[in-house]
């Protein structure tokens, strides 16, 4: 099957500041360095990496807003430079900026304008926004208000609505849940998980919120200093995995509880403890993370130790992220295990 996106040896260099618009640039910086990967139709790929790694640059090249310096980028088999207009009709982008609407128009008027650029008429737009608009809290009354009166979160939601109603084969999301409260973030994730999957949209998202990555992505691409350092599956499904339990108790009490319960919990293996601001974090790798977490809940409950949080998967990415971005911090995290 032909990939929805095919990137080969993509390099992007930005010219440095020009003293005058017509002057040659003083220097040059590399934003992307020989990046290659494919995205299958209907797949959700997440780009992660520290700020300035090149994630947004990559999204902008994939959506034709930037031109590559070298290499090739094909979207649905079409080159993003040679067939730019063809590609533009098939992509939608949610930027990480709220500066993407007209402040003096209402939310509805903004939707009409931008969707009209895709030849989407009033009646069809009104039909398509339901029930998604209501789910996002963008009721007719909210959409009738001026955009300048919107909170940052509402502005972000309107961006989502604009991108989703276009129903393009490819959707690009830059920091999809930034500026959103937990409920709204969850709603956005639900839409990507259900609606985009139902539509078989190919989604590429850039995220600093690793919960988004864990929840949404089929695969994760880690970008650092413009290089694609790793690309792989986001979750490995059933099988061995990490468990992290945070308790409101001293490390000694937690350690004693674990030793006492070693026989009852079963294949507990080795664990590591870390004290953090009055909390104790237990880290271990279990054959069956869900069953182990349930057993630990029972064990600590019987020992009257207050559990603050249980994480099964998200910290894997977080620690992988830290290990790759900051070797010293990463080693410290690994040492803790």
């Amino acid at each position: 099957m032909e990939p929805a996106i095919s990137v080969r040896d993509l390099t992007k260099r930005f010219p440095g500041e020009r003293p005058q618009p017509w002057s040659p640039p003083r220097s040059e910086s590399i934003a992307l360095d020989r990046v290659s990967f494919d995205v299958a139709p209907g797949e959700v790929l997440s780009l992660i990496g520290p700020n300035g790694a090149g994630k947004t640059t990559l999204l902008k090249i994939l959506t034709t807003l930037l031109r590559p310096t070298a290499g090739s980028v094909r979207v649905l088999g079409h080159d993003v430079v040679a067939d730019e207009a063809w590609v533009r009709a098939r992509v939608a982008l949610v930027t990480n900026s709220e500066r993407s609407f007209y402040y003096r128009l209402t939310g509805w008027e903004n939707l009409r304008f931008f969707c009209g650029l895709y030849n989407l008429g009033r009646a069809e737009l009104a039909e398509r926004i339901h029930p998604m608009a209501d789910d996002l809290g963008l009721t007719p009354a909210v959409l009738a208000r001026s955009y300048r009166a919107y909170s940052t979160g509402t502005q972000r939601k309107l961006q989502f609505l604009r991108a989703f109603v276009l129903d393009t084969p490819l959707l690009f999301l830059d920091e999809p849940t930034s500026s959103l409260d937990p409920v709204s973030s969850e709603e956005i994730r639900r839409i990507v998980q259900t609606e985009c999957r139902r539509r078989r949209q190919t989604v590429v998202l850039s995220a600093n919120n690793l919960v988004d990555v864990e929840r949404l992505a089929d695969r994760v691409a880690f970008i650092h200093h413009g290089r694609l350092e790793m690309i792989g599956r986001a979750a490995d499904g059933p099988g061995p995995g990490p468990v992290r339990v945070t308790l409101r108790a001293a490390p000694e009490r937690v350690d004693a509880a674990l030793r006492a319960g070693r026989s009852t919990v079963g294949a507990l293996g080795e664990w590591a403890l870390e004290a953090r601001a009055g909390l104790t974090v237990v880290r271990l790798v279990a054959e069956n993370p869900e069953a182990t977490a349930t057993a630990l809940l029972d064990l600590f409950g019987r020992q009257h130790l207050a559990i603050d949080q249980i994480d099964l998967r998200p910290f894997v990415l977080e620690e992988e992220f830290l290990r790759r971005v900051d070797p010293i911090l990463g080693e410290a995290e690994e040492g803790g295990l």
Partner: peptide, 25 residues
């Protein structure tokens, strides 16, 4: 992964109605 091609319902041809609509917009 689903083998069906993605939907292309976001793509609309240009026509007189779209010219009139964009003029209005």
């Amino acid at each position: 992964m689903d083998a069906d091609p993605p939907r292309l319902s976001g793509i609309r041809p240009e026509g007189i109605r779209s010219v009139a609509r964009k003029t209005y917009l």
